[in-house]
């Protein structure tokens, strides 16, 4: 397949993915905006005003980066897992599998689709957050880079979930029982400096903790983690997950009999 053909195929997958989540915007874009808006009102405004400062910032300012990141993570993941699994469920994935599109183009198309939704919801949440807090981004490069890399990581993770899923239950188990606890325990609502040493160590094993804190560093200029180490980890995750996805696609796991 020629390079321009590959680009057209890639663009087609991305276009279709964006068309899918914008067509059902009431299910994909509005609910996370409302949920996170409620977090701002309840935790940031009502409860936060009594908490005072966290990590040297007003509580509302402290939780904004974490909530934006939470929206990006959840939506990148759920876009890929639900889209790819519904293609499997309806057998429309066969359209792609019999076509000459290389596996890495298929994967890249779905990743960019997941990133598009993650970033769209992240942008909506950021705009909502401006009604509650003044955001002065300290390091634009780090802010943008970490959010892009994080959305890639969770799009890839969603893809693997979809490959192995055999039912709609299978695509909700990981987000409910793994992703949500990791996000809530990833320093979205608190600084790990508040934790006893054991729980501080446990938090250090949670990859989302590094992503949230690096993003917070980009916006507020303060972090509980080493930003360089966090970027290194993100890159390692991407390489491992991308390699795993390609291996599974080549093997035909969950796709070919």
């Amino acid at each position: 397949m020629f390079l321009n053909h590959k680009y057209i195929a890639f663009e087609t997958i991305v276009r279709r993915e964006i068309r899918r989540f914008t067509r059902i915007w009431l299910q994909t874009l509005v609910p996370p905006a409302i949920t996170i808006g409620l977090y701002f009102v309840i935790f940031g405004n009502l409860v936060g005003s009594r908490i005072g400062e966290m990590g040297g910032f007003q509580y509302m300012e402290f939780i904004v980066p974490g909530l934006i990141m939470m929206a990006v993570i959840q939506n990148s993941y759920s876009n890929v897992v639900s889209s790819f699994f519904s293609h499997k469920f309806q057998h429309s994935i066969e359209e792609l599998l019999v076509s000459p599109v290389p596996n890495y183009i298929i994967l890249s198309g779905f990743i960019v689709g997941g990133m598009a939704r993650g970033l769209a919801v992240g942008t909506i949440v950021t705009v909502i957050s401006l009604f509650f807090a003044d955001l002065e981004i300290q390091n634009l490069f780090i802010t943008i880079t970490v959010v892009l890399l994080t959305s890639i990581v969770f799009s890839l993770a969603g893809f693997i979930n979809a490959l192995f899923a055999n039912s709609f239950d299978d695509i909700s188990i990981i987000p409910t029982f793994v992703l949500t606890p990791l996000i809530y325990l990833g320093g979205v609502f608190y600084s790990v400096e508040l934790l006893p040493p054991f729980w501080k160590f446990i938090s250090g094993l949670n990859p989302i903790f590094y992503m949230v804190n690096t993003f917070r560093y980009g916006i507020l200029g303060t972090s509980d983690v080493d930003v360089t180490w966090a970027f290194f980890m993100l890159c390692v995750f991407i390489v491992i997950l991308f390699g795993s996805c390609i291996f599974l696609l080549r093997k035909g796991t969950g796709l070919r009999t």
């Binding site: 020629f2 195929a9 359209e95 792609l96 599109v101």
Partner: peptide, 9 residues
């Protein structure tokens, strides 16, 4: 979409 998979402009 199918045409796109085959690289048709």
């Amino acid at each position: 979409t199918q045409a796109g998979y085959y690289g048709l402009p």
